[in-house]
């Protein structure tokens, strides 16, 4: 009798679990598979073909596209641009982010208002931000007009000089991502127990020493999040490049991998080659972020 009851309960529980799975898990997994996983697989597949809008027949070419990419000086230049932007964004945003977070923590009355101000660029569209900055930085824009009014006859071509444009674009991305980094560092600072700060104060750690030996090591989780997020965002930057410089000036002074992927796919209409480039970008981001994540997580401690 009790054996039958127990079996019935087990069956009912199994149905209940299956029902929960169907209701809560299946829709999410289906959407994820349809809009994320399937396109990635499809792109990877196209990357193994010679698909081109003007070519009547598409053939499987194996790793040919990847091998061509690895030997291409254009791709090397694009990769170098992307790495430079990524380094500037990761280093610059982290340094400014932690500095501003520390200042905001000191100025408690302005804390809430300024925190919102710094976060505004994050919620703005990258295109909107780029249009605003473009109007400021073009040769006859507000910045250069102002510089000329101060007697500087030949102000820099912020977006038109090939030796400067890449850094200008990087600076704008730093500006846009800064709010995110500040908020993450503020959360990290709020998570450091007050007593630890006080103990450090009593132990004689003040100013830079306190930051170096106590605050910065304890901000390790915030640094990890910021670094990985910034690295991924900067590595796949497209919108700002498209609006600010369109990959120029000159021959690709600011062209990044993502920009080159779009250009190859939709201007040159070489879908196979572009897909291989996108696949390579995905592989580089995945490997780099995994390595960085592992290295940085080793610094993190639990209280």
């Amino acid at each position: 009798m009790s054996q039958n009851v127990s079996n019935r309960r087990r069956i009912l529980r199994a149905w209940h679990d299956a029902g929960n799975f169907a209701i809560f898990v299946v829709p999410g997994v289906t959407v994820f598979a349809a809009v994320v996983f399937a396109p990635i697989l499809w792109t990877m597949w196209i990357g193994l073909t010679n698909e081109r809008a003007t070519r009547p027949q598409t053939l499987f070419v194996g790793l040919d596209n990847y091998l061509t990419l690895l030997g291409s000086s254009t791709f090397h230049a694009v990769l170098v641009n992307t790495v430079i932007i990524t380094l500037i964004v990761v280093v610059g945003t982290n340094i400014l982010g932690v500095s501003i977070a520390l200042l905001l923590r000191l100025e408690t009355r302005l804390y809430s208002a300024l925190r919102s101000v710094f976060f505004v660029p994050v919620i703005l569209s990258a295109v909107v931000v780029s249009v605003i900055w473009r109007s400021l930085l073009v040769d006859d824009g507000l910045l250069n007009t102002t510089l000329r009014s101060f007697g500087i006859q030949n102000p820099p071509g912020w977006l038109s000089d090939p030796s400067i444009a890449l850094y200008s674009v990087s600076g704008i991305i730093v500006w846009q991502m800064l709010g995110f980094a500040v908020v993450v560092y503020l959360a990290g600072l709020a998570g450091i127990p007050k007593e630890i700060d006080e103990a450090a104060e009593i132990d004689g750690a003040v100013g830079w020493q306190r930051f170096r030996y106590i605050t910065w090591p304890l901000l390790a989780p915030s640094f990890t999040i910021n670094t990985v997020m910034l690295m991924i965002s900067a590595f796949k930057v497209y919108d700002q490049i498209a609006v600010l410089t369109n990959g120029g000036p000159g021959t690709g002074a600011t062209t990044t991998i993502a920009f080159k992927v779009v250009e190859t796919a939709f201007v040159e209409q070489r879908a196979g080659y572009a897909s291989a480039m996108a696949g390579l970008m995905l592989i580089i981001i995945a490997i780099a972020s995994t390595l960085v994540l592992r290295a940085l997580q080793r610094r993190e401690v639990t209280y």
Binding site: E195, I196, E201, I202, D203, V206, Y213, P217, L218, T302
Partner: peptide, 20 residues
């Protein structure tokens, strides 16, 4: 005077050890 210059040492309820 700043805490460090008072030549005092303090032990906290939560220990306040540096976890790293």
């Amino acid at each position: 005077e700043a805490p460090a210059r008072r030549k005092l040492a303090m032990v906290f309820q939560s220990y306040a050890l540096y976890p790293h």
